[in-house]
Simulated scan of single mutants.
Amino acid sequence: MTSPDSMTVFDRALVRRRRDRAVAEFTDHSFLFEEIADRLADRLEDVIRPFPLALDVGCHDGAMGRILKGRKGIERLVACDLSPDFARAAGGTGNRAVAAAIAADEEFLPFAPGSFDLAVSNLSLHWVNDLPGALVQIRQALKPDGFFCASMLGGQTLAELRRCLYEAEMEVSGGVSPRVSPFAEIKDAGGLLQRAGFALPVVDSDVITVTYSDAFALMRELRGMGETNAVLARRKVPASRALLFDAARRYAELYAEPDGRIPVTFEVLYLAGWSPHESQQQPSKRGSGQIPLGDALKGGGLQ
């Protein structure tokens, strides 16, 4: 499904290959996925109802399923990921939290309408080209009054690295190309949920700061996560040593803390919404108020 105003920003085949490559050593670099999965599960605790059949969209190695095991009345969880290798890892024999795991593209979900009570997605949707279309498909896969909650990286993520690569490339090459993937802004996320047909949408965010010994350690971490640049408009040749060393130097000069370590910003957006159902709270119809606005303002002391 492709929405009329969607754009092809990411090379999805490259995203898949980089995830496949990351599987073997992912547990050495998965701290952010584990941490955010835990925070996402905590948000689910505020919803007082069971979800017998759940879907994990973009499951990576199954962290979300492991954390949700035995919680929220989940009896079966289906996990899917763009990467076949990650899907196999999530559905491995050691992960009994997952009833089934399949390779599936978030932009072309293979599930029948009204299948699931709950859909979750942990740090995957920021790689989707047609995010409105993907959200529509997730909403359609939910039963009426089904719940959706997700985390995705937001616009301030890797702001320091973005700046340093930009300035270094201007200095070394005399021009710039996309070196860090674009991320959604929080001001847009609520509108995306509404456009996708979710009821009672809620969006909030966290900013997590992590420190590394230097910029090269950060770049190795991003590669280990499978989160390196996959923008179609990127330069297809690897960055030169001169560019990388200049960017690392700038990062240290601009941002290093007293102990020499560099801070890295990850902004995480949390999205939540319900598949529409007649039992849900509805806004009052326009003009249905019983007290004239002028009287209400007078009563509040505003003349």
Rank of each mutant, 00 (worst) to 15 (best):
G191M: 06
F148W: 03
G190S: 08
S124V: 05
A104C: 14
F116M: 04
D105M: 04
I102P: 12
R162C: 04
L193N: 08
S181D: 13
G146C: 03
P182F: 02
E106Y: 11
A184Q: 14
G146V: 01
S115I: 06
L158N: 09
R195E: 15
M170L: 10
P201Y: 00
I102A: 14
F147E: 01
E167I: 02
R163A: 09
A184Y: 07
F108D: 13
E185K: 13
G191P: 06
P132Y: 11
G114Y: 13
G146M: 05
R195I: 08
R179T: 10
F148P: 00
E160Q: 14
E106T: 14
L161N: 12
Q137A: 13
P182E: 01
V172C: 00
R195K: 12
G154P: 05
A199Q: 02
P132T: 12
L125V: 14
R163I: 02
P110I: 03
G175L: 12
P182M: 12
G197L: 11
S181I: 10
A184F: 04
C149R: 15
P144F: 01
E107S: 06
S124R: 05
L131G: 09
S177N: 02
D117M: 01
H126R: 10
P113M: 04
F111R: 08
D145K: 04
R163G: 01
Y166S: 08
L200D: 07
E171D: 12
C149Q: 13
P178S: 00
F148T: 02
C164Y: 03
V176T: 13
G190P: 09
V128M: 12
V172F: 00
G175T: 09
L131W: 03
N129E: 04
E167N: 09
L142I: 08
S115C: 11
G155N: 13
G114L: 05
L135M: 03
G190H: 11
F111I: 13
A199N: 09
F198G: 00
L123C: 13
F198N: 02
A103C: 14
G146Y: 00
R139T: 00
A168P: 02
A103F: 14
R179M: 02
S121T: 10
F116G: 08
F111E: 10
I138Y: 01
P144D: 05
L125P: 15
L109S: 07
A141M: 06
A100D: 09
